[in-house]
Nucleic acid binder design. Sequence first.
DNA 1: ATGAAAGCGCTAACAT
DNA 2: ATGTTAGCGCTTTCAT
Lengths: 341, 341
Amino acid sequence: MKSSQVTIHDIARELKISASTVSRALSDNPRISLSTRKKVKELAVKLNYQPNIVASNLRTGRSKTIGVIVPHINRNFFSNVIGGIEETASNAGYRTIITQTCEKYEKEVDNVKALINARVDGILVSISGETHNLDHFNLVKQNKIPLLFFDRVADEIEANKVMVDDFKGAYKAVSHLINEGFRKIVHFAGPPHINVYKNRMLGYLEALNDNKIQQIDGYIFHDCLTEDKGWRSCENMMKYKNKPDAIFSASDISALGAIGYLKASGYDIPGDCAVVGFSNEPFTKIMEPGLTSIDQNSLEIGREVAALFLDEVHSAEKNDYKHIVIEPELIIRSSSLKKGV
Amino acid sequence: MKSSQVTIHDIARELKISASTVSRALSDNPRISLSTRKKVKELAVKLNYQPNIVASNLRTGRSKTIGVIVPHINRNFFSNVIGGIEETASNAGYRTIITQTCEKYEKEVDNVKALINARVDGILVSISGETHNLDHFNLVKQNKIPLLFFDRVADEIEANKVMVDDFKGAYKAVSHLINEGFRKIVHFAGPPHINVYKNRMLGYLEALNDNKIQQIDGYIFHDCLTEDKGWRSCENMMKYKNKPDAIFSASDISALGAIGYLKASGYDIPGDCAVVGFSNEPFTKIMEPGLTSIDQNSLEIGREVAALFLDEVHSAEKNDYKHIVIEPELIIRSSSLKKGV
DNA sequence: ATGAAAGCGCTAACAT
DNA sequence: ATGTTAGCGCTTTCAT
């Protein structure tokens, strides 16, 4: 025998019943007598029968698998989201296939096609930084595969979505700086075609506006998401005639760069310049000074998007698409506390 | 039409040839004429034919999928390993299913069974902290599914394995401390039934021994892997009559706890006590002082274990099992440099 | 309450 | 160079 896999036919033969009866008995079909069900299940255990899911999938057209596409698997935020997805999905009997795009449009298209080919039952996406063209997502819809977005969503595509209220997160962060007495607040922004970065900038602008603080030319640094760019932008701005007294960065990483520069140049934080980041990366509470940041509740995002997928699959009729918005939380640390901790 | 999926039969009908010819043409079988191959492929593109991998899998008995089992998906070390696995596997046309055990034996057994049921072509495992019984891995072997281990391996099971030379990593770390002039070196250890922690302790002992440094009672703190335990162990040891002057911790996290205590109590690092961690977590270079640590080259571990899997699957005859040992690297930062940076 | 038969879409041994 | 045929193991309709 090749791989000695036990099938329903083996059970049927031994019990002198048909394979269809075995199949029904194993799925607790009420049309099969309790005694037969019991006999079948006992023998299945005894023979260590393992259902061939591949065959079942071929027959039913479902795969009990969901595909996830993220920019980077090893970014704390995304691996936490994935953890939440995996937890919720596996409790409902679904497996999870993880793919990453490394922020590349081409890889995103490839991954989408691969997941369609794998006949996954749903695709959960946080789109890459390079993605402008959204045709590959229409491919998913054409194949009638449930498509959901989380965090970085495609505004133009109708779908279930789980987002963070980035606007409010930014608003909270900047309001906090203003409450602490800072007035000349710079923003390190990300690419504005990505919803999360656009909304963080809008939240920043609104908070300034609501507090009657004039927006100043050169106070927004675009495409400033890396440590290196954070360092150089900070170096740059500290030479301004109209020197800023605080930074609200759309990313913890570039905030880290800014703090690196400030410390290397002997500036006091937050005395000479306060800093607030975004994402509440693990290092923010370890660095010195501790970096005030916005927590996005990443685990919850994963759980919600998986739950939304289960809803979409199990609800018979087509409901309207839902947009779940996760409330971000301001985590205050000493990098923004004028009075000290 | 239900899902309007194009099959090889649709192509066959339109071209008035048989389905098997289409199947062969699509896989570039040389028995099919070039002109037919060309016609078939063109029509496949035109009709947007997508091969049904599930059907193919059922027929061939392969699934082109590998299953990965890790203790925690969102630990930097593991998500990097997974990144390496995913990269190598996807280049070879394999998909990757990720599962996590949360260090629980029960979840590990469940995950193994689920992956066997899913008919994965291979299972790559880093075993959980709770695992003592290894029967579930024999189940994998009984099903003739290639089984590989990485980092935390099962010594008792014959298999391809990718390990870090934890002994050497620890030896390097402790030798470095000794070179810097530290002599009274404490060890924060992990559970000794896990190979990596056992070897880190052995490397520590060997380095002491080779340098004729007497081992001192109470200088090994067992099961000390969390921030809290690192803090309390450090607090404890600083009250010793024979006060240590350095810590070699098997984990960056407990090293972080120790540094927290030392700083809170006004001790100088490394003047009063040097600290070296293990894993080179991202926060080690950000904290103050920077934490000297051991880098395990996690991405490379993932690439190697995936490559080893591909070897095992593609080599016709059964070769001996290989044990690949990754060289760890000492990353020196100021927490252990007596002379300053 | 159970069985027979068909077929999901693909591959491969065996024709011709 | 191409076609025929027979499944992979399961589910499900239609019978009895």
